[in-house]
Simulated assay, not measured.
Amino acid sequence: MDKLFNYKYLTKKHLKGLDNYKYSAIDTSPLSNYVMHPLWNTTVKILPKWLAPNLLTFAGFVLMVALVVLLGVYDYGCHGPLADDGVRVPDWVYTACGVLLFVAYNLDGLDGKQARRLGVSGPLGEMFDHGIDSYVVFFIPYGLIAVFGRDHEFTLPVIRGLLIVVSVCLNFFVSHWEKYNTGVLYLPWGYDISMWATSLLFLVPGLNGPTVYHTYLIGQVTVAQALEVVVHTTGLVTTLPVAVYNLYLAHKNRTAIYKSILEALRPVWSMLVLNVVFIAWAVTSPSNILEYDPKAFLLLYGTNFSHILCRLIVAEMSKQRCDVIAWMCWPLLAGAAVSLYLPHLEVPTMYSLVLLSLAGHLHYAICVVRQLCVHYKISCFAVPKSKRK
C-alpha cells in the first residue's frame, strides 16, 4: 500500500517553485470582510491548538460527501420531492443538507485562520484547501439539482441541469486561470453569497416541504428557471469580465507571469476539451446516458473537473507551465467515441470511466500530499508539538 501511493508527481522544479511560493489574494466582498471574517476570527480562538488546519479542511469535505451520499440514498434519480419509488423524500434530508453545507463552508473559512494562528501556513495547506474546494464547488450544484427534481413543469431538463453544473465549475476555473497568469487569487464576491444562498435553498424545503419551489415567480418563470438565469449571468457578467480585466492590467503593468496569449491560454484547452466532450456526449448519446443515470454522468464530469483544477493549482503555485491537455481527457475522449460507435457498450463504458477517474484522481491527490509532507518534513493532519503551546 505504501508503494502504491509513493509515486512522485511533482518534479524538482515544482518543489523549488513551491519553496519560493508566497500566498497572494484579494478579497473585497462586503459579506466576507464585515460578517464572515470577524465571525471566523472570533471562533478560531476557541479551537484547540492540537487541531490541524488540514483536519478542518478535510472535515468540511467529509460533510459535503455526506450531503451527496444522503441525497443519493433518498433520491438517486434526481426526481426531487418524489424519489424513484414514488415515496416522498423526508423533509429532514433537505434540512440536513443545508446544515452540512453551511458547516462545511465555515470550516473552510476557519482552516486558514487556524493555520495563521498556529504559524503553520504553507504551500501544503493552501494546495490541500484549494484542491478540495475544486471538488466541493461541483458538489454544491450536484446536490442542489435534487431539490428541484426533474420531469415536471417546475424544474429544468436534465441537460440544462448539466449546464448549471458546468457554469458553476467554470466560475471556479476562471479564478484559478486568473491566478495562473497574475499570481494573485481574486476572490469573487459570489462565493460567500452563493454559500449562504445555497444553504437557504436547502433549508427552505426542509422547513416548508420540497414542493415549496413548485411555483411561478413572475408570469411563467419558475424558481428553477430564475436560478438558472442567475447562475449563468453571474459568470458571464461578473467573474469572466473581471478576470479578463485583471489579466489586462497585469500585462499593462508588466506583472503578468506569461507574456504571450498562447501561454496565457494554456490552461483553457483541457477545460475546453472536458466541457465539449461532456456536452456533446450528453446531446448525442444513443442511450440518452444523462437521463439514464444523471448522478453517475455528473460525477464523472465533476471528478475530471477537479483533477484538471488540481493540476492547474499545482502549476500556478509552483509557477510551472500546466498541461496542455490533462491525461484524464484522453480516456474520456475514447469513452465518448466508444459510446457513439458501439451504443451497447455506452453504459458500462460510463461506469468504467467513473471508476477510472475516481481512482486516478485519488491516487494523484494522495501521492502529491505524501510527497509534500516528506519534502517539508511535516504531517498533513497533525500540528507540531512546538506550535501547540
Rank of each mutant, 00 (worst) to 15 (best):
I257M: 03
I257G: 01
Y258A: 01
K259C: 03
K259Y: 07
S260Y: 07
I261W: 04
L262G: 09
L262R: 12
L262C: 00
L262E: 10
L265A: 00
R266E: 11
R266M: 07
R266P: 09
P267R: 00
P267E: 09
P267G: 10
P267T: 04
P267A: 07
V268A: 05
V268Q: 08
V268K: 02
W269N: 12
W269P: 00
S270Q: 05
M271I: 01
M271R: 00
M271H: 10
L272E: 06
V273H: 01
V273D: 04
L274S: 01
L274T: 09
N275A: 02
V277P: 03
V277C: 10
F278P: 02
F278L: 15
F278D: 01
I279P: 13
I279N: 13
A280M: 09
A280K: 05
W281L: 13
W281M: 05
W281Y: 07
A282H: 13
A282S: 12
A282D: 04
A282K: 00
A282Y: 06
V283D: 07
T284K: 15
S285G: 02
P286H: 06
S287C: 00
N288A: 02
N288P: 04
L290A: 14
Y292Q: 09
D293A: 02
P294I: 00
K295P: 05
K295M: 03
A296P: 00
F297S: 08
L298M: 09
L298T: 03
L299C: 09
Y301V: 08
Y301S: 08
Y301F: 15
G302Y: 13
G302P: 13
G302V: 06
T303P: 09
T303S: 13
T303R: 12
T303N: 05
S306E: 04
S306I: 04
H307Q: 12
L309M: 11
C310E: 07
C310I: 12
R311Y: 13
L312F: 04
L312P: 05
I313G: 09
I313T: 12
V314Q: 14
V314K: 06
V314R: 03
A315H: 09
A315I: 13
E316K: 07
M317R: 07
S318H: 06
K319W: 03
K319S: 11
K319C: 14
K319I: 14
Q320N: 15
Q320S: 14
R321D: 00
D323C: 12
I325W: 03
A326Y: 10
W327C: 10
W327I: 14
M328G: 02
W330A: 04
W330L: 11
P331H: 03
L333N: 04
A334R: 02
A334S: 13
A334L: 11
A334I: 10
G335N: 12
G335D: 02
A336W: 02
A336G: 08
V338L: 09
V338Q: 14
S339P: 08
